[in-house]
Amino acid sequence: MQRLLITGSSGTVGRLLVDRLAAARPDRRLRLLDLHHPDGLADRADPAGVELVEGSVTDAAVVAAAVEGVDAVLHLGGISVEGPWRDVLEVNVHGTFTVLDEAARAGVRTVVLASSNHAVGMTRRGDADLPADAPFHPDTYYGWSKTAGESLGRLFVERAGLDVVALRIGSCRERPQNVRELATWLSPDDCARLVEASVDPATTGFHLVWGVSRNTRRWWSLAEGEAIGYRPADDAEVFAAEVERAGGEPVPVDVVGGSFTRFALGTCDVQG
């Protein structure tokens, strides 16, 4: 039996993954941690297969109880957009530290961190695929918080013996919403495949991996994901005609972070 804790399970990516990860293995038991859970989840969930925990990832006592007895943690909990410095620091950095620290204390084998393309958001596109270990070049406080999380993950590998995979996630949603996302899209099914590869006991040490599907227009490397057994199957190009017909406000595609590179720090307001 594999016991998997998912923090931030009620967030955008968590909602896409819970059912997929529950169905992937009949011997898997999920523990879901979030501030609140959607109405009806407790009634719909299999009482023997899904356990619900309410609380914050910044609360060490809550996290300590949540990681007890689990084999792996998928840490999705946190602020997923640009926000005020103190909020981002508390939730994304202190929260990630708390999860890593309590997981190490509890003897958890693997922690998978939801990092972001915004950790390197100011990086300009080149002709070659950008490697998953591209140096930090954050575009926002949010992006910086993800560099801090990656760095903490490496520290806990070196000093506490955890196995950590940091996923530099692109745009994980049911379908791409604009031309940029034809390159950065991570389908929910591919995201589940990536998590499966990350929590596999054969994946050890520290890894940085792009969270992206096998998109025709992709400009990020798949090699690092393939090295841990990730085999993406989906391609955003099937939505290309629909996305291009829809038009809409242009999103920058010459830098990794897209619109985030235009946000005023601490807000989601576009500068200029």
Rank of each mutant, 00 (worst) to 15 (best):
D27E: 13
L76N: 08
A66C: 09
A246Y: 03
A233R: 15
H137K: 08
W85D: 07
G153T: 03
P131V: 07
D59G: 09
P232G: 12
L5N: 11
V120G: 06
P47Y: 14
D87E: 13
D189F: 02
S171G: 12
L130Y: 12
S10F: 04
G55F: 07
D71Y: 08
E226K: 01
V91I: 14
S259C: 08
R159L: 08
G205I: 06
D87K: 11
A24L: 06
R214N: 15
Q2V: 08
A227P: 08
L265H: 14
A48Q: 14
V157Y: 00
T204I: 05
I79S: 11
P176C: 13
V120W: 03
G229D: 07
M122C: 09
R109F: 03
N117D: 12
L17T: 09
W210V: 00
R175Q: 15
V13K: 04
A48G: 14
E196F: 06
A104Y: 03
A160D: 08
S221R: 04
D59V: 14
A183L: 05
V195L: 03
E51F: 06
W220L: 09
D133W: 05
T267Q: 10
D269Q: 13
S115L: 07
V18L: 11
A103N: 01
G149E: 00
G266E: 08
E174S: 10
H94N: 11
D43Q: 15
L182E: 00
L152F: 05
G14N: 13
D87L: 14
Y230K: 00
D43R: 15
H118W: 09
Q271K: 12
D129Q: 06
G95M: 06
L30M: 09
V88N: 03
A72E: 01
G121N: 03
D269W: 01
D129I: 00
L162W: 02
G78A: 10
V50N: 04
D269L: 12
H75F: 04
P38W: 08
L76R: 02
W85Q: 05
P138Q: 09
D71L: 10
L155P: 00
R218D: 05
T12Q: 14
F239Y: 15
S259D: 14
F263E: 09
R168P: 12
R29E: 03
D133E: 05
L21D: 02
Y230N: 07
C172V: 07
R154Q: 13
P38L: 00
A192C: 10
E174G: 05
H36T: 14
P250M: 07
D254S: 13
T110H: 04
R3C: 03
G211W: 03
V13G: 02
E82M: 11
F263R: 10
T216S: 15
A128V: 04
T123W: 11
A202E: 13
L30Y: 06
L100C: 01
T216M: 11
R15V: 01
V164K: 05
P135D: 00
L152Q: 04
L155G: 13
